[in-house]
Design a protein around this nucleic acid. Structure first.
Lengths: 335, 335
DNA sequence: TTGTACGCGTTATCAA
DNA sequence: TTGATAACGCGTACAA
């Protein structure tokens, strides 16, 4: 029934309800003390006119848009989609629009995104990890917009974060491989973001503790993570280090790529080489053999981070600024 | 160096450049006729002050935000991420911000997203397919915002779309299976969106043409697509129809899940059953055996759709309103 | 509890 | 070619 270009404004709603625009505004926002009867009339009028507040006018008048920036390194990685979906599930019902940004693992792109998005005067922001350019750090700091850091943890006071110790998780995986008898354990990684390197640290710590550490057994590729790359690195590793008895891949994609190449070449897993991944993505339970990995509670991280941001946006002080969601070693068939 | 809360406005820039705000506005937008020397001074002033235009004020004054809505059914599907990334790669350099929305394959959610996003007065919009609620259709229509439909094609005049014939692609896959000797060909699908059903139509057409069509060989599950589900449906299908000699899965995820269960149960592919997927996702070339599938040029669709939207937004009339990007049958080892 | 006046930062419009 | 003025639609601050 609505014809083209009909834009209802607060004034229209107010007139229909027989009140001033200001009262209508208050009623619709559920603010202050508006007589219940009036509020009801305003809501009815708004509904009748299909009134939708103009976010631009709102932002301009109040100096705040009802939006929350969420920055992740990539959309091609299920880990970050889980984060996004969970955050959105919290923020949307609270009336906030989520502005999704992918940095493509680039500091420059993150900086650019921050500059662009901050111009919208968001009410809050969720970003991934702590590794970023100095300029980006300052943009966040100076904007004074409540910010929650996801995935990793820090002790720094006043910094709000929800995540897990990537190093501890990496150590746990390696410890498991050692506990099942492995002695020559390799680490295969790609993308090489901060978390991947933190897992490497955990890997080293576990090996050093048992005197098994050998720097030659680390294969770090800056290339983008993929099944294909995992397969290539797997074969390369076996060729270079035939004495290997376990491989810890920094993520499930690489690990599954390795498992597939193993199948293709008749390399028996875990008999010949134990294989472990990281993240416990959907497919980990379906591979042949099923993948031993670490379950990272991504959805929980997104949910708690969004909830924490919401609290900060309301001006509340949150008690626990660093929330450790932990991780869970999932032992399946591959190691 | 910038201190907290310093917001530069057009007025600041204008003062520094020694011109009126209006001239500064024009100079920065590269509009109308501003003396080259003045324009240069304004740009310098803007740069010096790190001036960033306020998008809210802009949208309010001009009744248009420099944003483009892009709606996809899911972020968990690499197909749509490819679409998004490609569109963004075109729109961002053109100065448009992309508002990403996931409908979760829900008509209601799409309607809700449209209502929310349209309030921002976007300059353009990209949506997926043609299947949506009547209300959503009207929201798009009445908004008068240039809209390009992605993934599917239509002959309807005045409708701008970039995609491929899902039916023709489904037919091509099935024809290939038949050409390699299969006679009892099954179709396994999940999610059951419009495109999945269009592929089913193509499948039927190919089978009818050779007199091999048997409605009992269609297994349609409304559940979400996943590797696990693919494996389950594969085993279920083989048990119900032991005489089957080929299976066409509506997407690569399901197909790969099937391949993995086949491996686990020692069912030889393609000897026992030929298997084909759809989309040619990253992993298709890595599976065991490598997956025969159809390559859909998603990135190209996103790119062309965004380019077309850009043209429409500039008020240009585009010659070809329906762009068929085609598809390519990728024959590997599984069929 | 309700309403009035004003301003948010920008662009459209018109005049010079 | 440039500038003054008036919106855009809403919320803040204050008055009633």
């Amino acid at each position: 029934m609505t014809s083209i270009g009909v834009r209802r404004t607060l004034k229209d709603v107010a007139e229909l309800a027989g009140v001033s625009p200001m009262t209508a505004s208050r009623a619709l926002r559920g603010i202050g003390t508006v007589a219940p009867e009036l509020a009801q009339r305003v809501r009815a009028a708004a509904a009748a006119l299909h009134y939708v507040p103009d976010p631009a006018a709102r932002a301009l008048a109040s100096a705040h848009s009802r939006s929350v920036i969420v920055l992740v390194p990539s959309l091609a990685n299920a880990v970050f989609i889980d984060l996004l979906e969970a955050a959105q599930a919290v923020l949307a019902p609270a009336g906030y629009q989520v502005l999704i940004g992918s940095t493509h693992y680039s500091r420059d792109e993150e900086e650019e995104l921050l500059r662009t998005y901050l111009a919208h005067r968001p009410s809050g922001m969720l970003v991934t990890g702590f590794e970023r350019s100095e300029a980006a750090r300052r943009l966040i700091e100076d904007s004074a917009v409540p910010c929650v850091f996801m995935m990793e943890l820090t002790d720094a006071p006043g910094v709000h974060c929800v995540g897990l110790s990537q190093e501890a998780a990496g150590e746990a995986v390696t410890a498991h491989l050692l506990a099942t008898g492995a002695r020559r354990v390799g680490y295969v990684a790609a993308q090489l973001d901060a978390r991947t390197l933190q897992r490497a640290e955990g890997y080293r710590r576990a090996l050093r503790a048992t005197g098994c550490y050998d720097p030659a057994l680390e294969l770090l590729s800056p290339a983008r993570s993929s099944l294909r790359l995992g397969g290539e690195l797997f074969l390369e590793f076996l060729e270079r280090h035939p004495d290997i008895d376990a491989l810890f891949f920094c993520n499930d994609d690489l690990a599954q790529g390795g498992l597939l190449e193993a199948l293709r070449h008749g390399i028996r897993i875990p008999e010949r080489v134990r294989v472990a991944g990281f993240n416990d993505l959907d497919g980990a339970g379906c591979s042949v053999p099923r993948l031993t990995t670490v379950r990272t509670p991504r959805a929980l991280i997104g949910e708690l981070a969004a909830t924490m941001a919401l609290a900060l946006m309301r001006g509340e002080r949150v008690g626990r600024t660093a929330v450790d969601v932990g991780f869970e070693l999932i032992v399946r068939e591959s190691a």
